[in-house]
Amino acid sequence: MAAMFSQNPLMNGPNYSFNQTPTAAAAGNKEHAFYPYTDNGGSTLAIAGEDFTIIAGDTRSTSGYNINTRYQPKVFKIGGTTSSQDDANIILSVVGFAADGEALKERLDAIVKMYRYQHGKPMSVKACAQRLSTILYGKRFFPYYVHAILGGLDEEGKGAVYSYDPVGSYEREQCRAGGAAASLIMPFLDNQVNFKNQYMPGSGVGHDLQERERKPLPLVEVEALVKDAFDSAVERHIEVGDGLLMMMATKNGIEEKYIPLKRD
């Protein structure tokens, strides 16, 4: 797991996600002949606003240095009642092993649909978030090899983003980047969304420095941030590119937007 999502300081060379574990063979018995996972690359990003949530992901699918396809969405609407999912209120993004991602999405979607039919109301994002954790933990010993991010509007209409590790540990956050370029995007987000390392000009030096006051960002600005984040990730990570699929949850439902990215 650590291989995918953390930067290993012992590693040398370029940090491609399929090349992030130590290359030396581990000592002791190694018992595997068939390895049931692969990494399909790509990156995702979610930001919660005052009254909206944006979840985005690139559309490239890779296998090693090959591009499988330039269009395979990683962001999905969950729990709608039609095939187009028009009436969905929850967004899920999955990045990592695409087959597990697909299986996870299908399972969560079926569960959220059943909730809707049985209770006569859509599932809250909070409840769905807990349910997703349970699903992931249910496969604790043969995990879904994915970094999932769930989002929507909470009971008060505020933007909500939940992010998960592959075995179901989760947390509600303001923003989160996942996948191959997570380590490239996350610090950018810390600075631009949570104003980390930004101080009031002229507020003093050392302990007198005052942090720049946090304020919620409007949708247009967040959208621009997402585009910038991906444009930068595309420049520096070979597994990210081709297209950007964004989903925006507001009180009017979920809006979808596709923007081409560089295909090199």
């Binding site: 499988n68 695409a98 697909e102």
Partner: peptide, 11 residues
């Protein structure tokens, strides 16, 4: 495409 891991994609 589909493969032994269940990975799928279309192009």
């Amino acid at each position: 495409s589909a493969d032994l891991l269940g990975t799928t994609f279309s192009a």
